[in-house]
Design a protein around this nucleic acid. Structure first.
Lengths: 118, 118
DNA sequence: ATACTGTCTAGAAGTTCATCTAATCAGGAA
DNA sequence: TTCCTGATTAGATGAACTTCTAGACAGTAT
């Protein structure tokens, strides 16, 4: 179930430091788009804060939308490289890819961010 | 030209640490949506890396789309609270609101982020 | 006042997106 | 095998988004 993705640089220059090249902007915007939905942002947060991994069956009850809709949103997060998953028996488990979040966080970092997170 | 916005908490719990409440998720997703477009992400980057402020007339030449399209995207960034602007004579100047970027960066922070930005 | 420049607003066209229902696939149990 | 449950895929619909052209507005200069 793993996806082949263009590998994002593991580190980057924050957007406040130098203007992004169009190609980098397209890459970054695609990942932000994956988080630009309330349900997907909550999904990401539930998965990322779950500790290790979490079963879809434990995710769905948090939401008021249909199962296929959750499945669709999980696919978007997967294709953005933010999470990955594996079927084990009847159930499918999801876990976060924290490098992706780290990369985004660094992209948005400002001089104040370093102080705030230090 | 300043906007009245619901004030985001200046600090926050990273999404990896605790699951976001629906209301927080809606708030965050709205800001991510503003950055989820290649042109807007480049605009944000150009404005944030300009030092102090920058004239629209110095922004437009970087892009291949029409003036009204740039104007529309700047409005989206403004309504997301990411930038603000002021007309001075013939020209309009934009500057970043770095607290907003700091907030987003902190929201996405992971344990690794603190190390990376420290 | 009139003309010119820089920027924004209004309205329209085409595209993308979120969501649903129905159907399909994967795996376990009888 | 056959049935049942968990999850995904397929297809359709209505809403939202991006972009354009045309027009309006703000300010300067002649």
């Amino acid at each position: 179930m793993s996806k082949q993705l263009p590998v994002l640089a593991t580190c980057c220059t924050p957007i406040s430091e130098a203007a992004l090249e169009p190609a980098q902007a397209a890459e970054g915007a695609a990942v932000f788009k994956a988080l630009a939905d309330p349900i997907r942002l909550r999904l990401m947060s539930i998965i990322a804060s779950a500790g290790d991994e979490i079963c879809v069956c434990d995710i769905t009850p948090h939401f008021d939308v249909s199962g296929p809709t959750i499945s669709h949103h999980l696919k978007v997060l997967r294709e953005a490289g933010l999470v990955d998953c594996e079927r084990r028996g009847t159930w499918v488990y999801y876990w976060p890819i924290p490098e992706r979040l780290t990369w985004l966080s660094a992209l948005l970092a400002t001089p104040a961010t370093a102080t705030a997170t230090a």
